[in-house]
Design a protein around this nucleic acid. Sequence first.
DNA 1: TTGACATTTCTAGGATTGTTGAAATATGGA
DNA 2: TCCATATTTCAACAATCCTAGAAATGTCAA
Lengths: 108, 108
Amino acid sequence: MDERQALIAFGAMSQETRLKIVRLLVKAGPDGMAAGIIAEAAGVTASNVSFHLKELERGGLVTARRDARSIVYSADYQALSGLIRFLMEDCCAGNPAICQPALAPACC
Amino acid sequence: MDERQALIAFGAMSQETRLKIVRLLVKAGPDGMAAGIIAEAAGVTASNVSFHLKELERGGLVTARRDARSIVYSADYQALSGLIRFLMEDCCAGNPAICQPALAPACC
DNA sequence: TTGACATTTCTAGGATTGTTGAAATATGGA
DNA sequence: TCCATATTTCAACAATCCTAGAAATGTCAA
């Protein structure tokens, strides 16, 4: 993940609807969810969910595939962990001791 | 870190100048850097750096203290690792196996 | 091929964010 | 106290982002 992607990804995660979508898709797992289902679950209009999904796609956080009439979105776990890694590198840079203890208990 | 803070923090990290500032402050360590020095290092005007520092402060990512005529900013490592933890929880939720291997090599 | 469904794209608006220079505030030294 | 320094706040404007509805696109089934 380069800086440009990270900026987009952070921007993608900084919006309430988009964060909600990411969470839904993470929970949904590799099967993903159709756009319409996501819209309903997030409580937004179809065109609005489409707008945000495109933004998430631009940030590389979700991927799309067509399944019959639906378009099914899934979270890209690699991108998410890439973003975490990016953050860890910035956080720990030159100060490993400070960051590491805080992370240990969170390890899934 | 609650969701509201996380949204602000992600927004804070999604802007080029602010990301640059966070990196500078992480590298600077607990001693921090005076606002003027940050402005110079980031290549922006004084009022602009002030604007962005306030945004970072709102997201809880930096703290400020006055030192004589200067105001010295430092990265808040706890907030940064809180943000990482927030991301990990969302990323791993229900799918620990997917996230963990990607993180192992990054552990500082 | 027609019609219904699922989604996206377009357009226009309002809302938020970013930038700049000028003025205001706070500090320390002469 | 008065001045220089360091920073913030203010005001105005430009740029970007968010939202909703309408129209367009793609898919399937009858």
